[in-house]
Amino acid sequence: MRYISWVWFWYVLLGFLLGGGAVYLWVTLREKAVNLVWYEWTLIVLGALIYILMGQTFIASFGEGQSQAAWMSLIFMGIPIILIVVGSLRLIKSRLAKQS
C-alpha cells in the first residue's frame, strides 16, 4: 500500500462536480422560477446516476490498470449523458414555450 494515495482526489473532484451541478440547477430553477415536472426530474436523476457510474468507472479503471476501459466508459456513458442533458433542456424549453 502506498503511504499516500491520491486516488481519493479524483473521487472528491467527481463529488464536487456533481454537487456543483446540483447547486447550479437549484439556483437557476429558483432564479427563473421554473418548476420541473416529474419526467424532467426523472431524466435529471437518470443523467446524474449515469454520470456517477461513468466517473467511478473512469477512475477505477485507471486504478485497475485498464486505461482503454477508462476511456471507453467516457464514450459509452458520456454520449447518453449529453443526449439526456440536451433532451431535457429541449423538453423544458418546449414545455415552457407552450405554457407562455
Binding site: 500500500m1 502506498r2 473521487y11 467527481l14 456517477i52
Partner: peptide, 19 residues
C-alpha cells in the same frame, strides 16, 4: 509504466461521495 490495483475500494468510493 504499469500500475498495480488501486487501493480505493468501492466502499471508500461510497464514503467519499458522502452517499
Amino acid at each position: 509504466k504499469t500500475h498495480y490495483h488501486s487501493t480505493v475500494s468501492r466502499r471508500d468510493f461510497m464514503k467519499i461521495l458522502g452517499m
